[in-house]
Simulated assay, not measured.
Amino acid sequence: MKTIDIDQLKVSIYKDTEEMGQAAADFAADKINSAIDDRGLANLILATGASQFSFLKALKQKEIDWAKVVVFHLDEYIGLSDSHPASFRKYLKDRILDEVKPSQVFLLNGDAEDIEAEIDRYSQELSDRSFDLACIGIGENGHIAFNDPPIADFNDPKLVKIAELDDACRNQQFGEGWFPSFEAVPKKALSLTIPAIMRCKTICCVVPDERKAEAVKNALFAKISTACPATILRKHSNTRIFLDTLSASQLDMF
């Protein structure tokens, strides 16, 4: 394992995805347990996608009193039911939530009849809480949640919004095997905004795989701008980024 500090970030590189996931889960479990010790409750935001497989597998094995954890998530496609194979609600239920059984779970309903009312509902639930930890990834286009470069806003006044997904983002979803064709990937999703993520006390960012290497390099070294939304993480006071050797392969210092 190698670690370097970049601006306010601590970046750690591990030999493989399994080791990376275990380390990220150790870090996340420590933050969750510290919040429970301090306040009797931890508020947590979880990400989805192929990048989170090893992390979530490891996290559910940690010693955590999940009866004292409240879980939210980052995003959900508009128009997909929670039984669709690509639904992020289904993803989280299948991979961790149904097993660990948190105290409360708040999931974005992408097939709600009234999307604006759903945005209002979720925004209110978010605004009523302070969040101890957000577990996120970085997309191939540099997005965090579904804040793709064309619509990312570092000063967004909203906590949740409708995100228009760019082609790079939709190609990633197709390439990961969630949809049978590019055309089947929805063009819109509900997403937490960048300020909603940045207000969390700690951010645990898990980014494996060579296909993320350019986005990782940009996130760490490009000018902080919405051209690569993940660059804003360098402004957060307590973010840890977990990489494997493939996602770190374009970082010359390693």
Rank of each mutant, 00 (worst) to 15 (best):
S130A: 13
D132W: 04
D132P: 07
L133E: 05
L133W: 09
A134T: 06
C135Q: 03
C135I: 05
G137C: 01
G137H: 02
I138N: 10
G139H: 01
G139M: 00
G139Y: 00
E140Y: 11
E140G: 15
G142K: 09
G142H: 04
G142R: 02
G142E: 07
H143T: 09
H143C: 05
I144G: 01
F146R: 01
F146L: 08
F146I: 08
F146C: 05
F146V: 01
N147F: 14
N147D: 07
D148I: 04
P149D: 02
P149T: 13
P150M: 06
P150Y: 04
I151T: 11
I151G: 00
I151N: 07
A152D: 08
A152N: 10
A152M: 09
F154P: 11
F154H: 01
D156H: 13
P157A: 01
K158V: 08
L159Y: 07
V160Y: 12
V160A: 06
I162N: 00
I162W: 01
A163M: 06
E164N: 14
E164W: 09
L165F: 05
D167N: 15
A168E: 13
C169P: 06
C169V: 07
C169F: 05
C169E: 08
R170E: 09
R170D: 02
R170L: 07
N171F: 13
Q172F: 05
Q172W: 07
Q173H: 11
F174Q: 14
F174K: 12
G175K: 11
G175F: 13
E176H: 13
W178R: 06
W178Q: 02
F179R: 08
P180K: 10
E183Y: 11
E183N: 14
A184Q: 09
A184R: 11
V185K: 06
V185L: 06
P186V: 12
P186T: 14
P186L: 11
K187L: 02
K187F: 07
K188E: 00
K188Y: 11
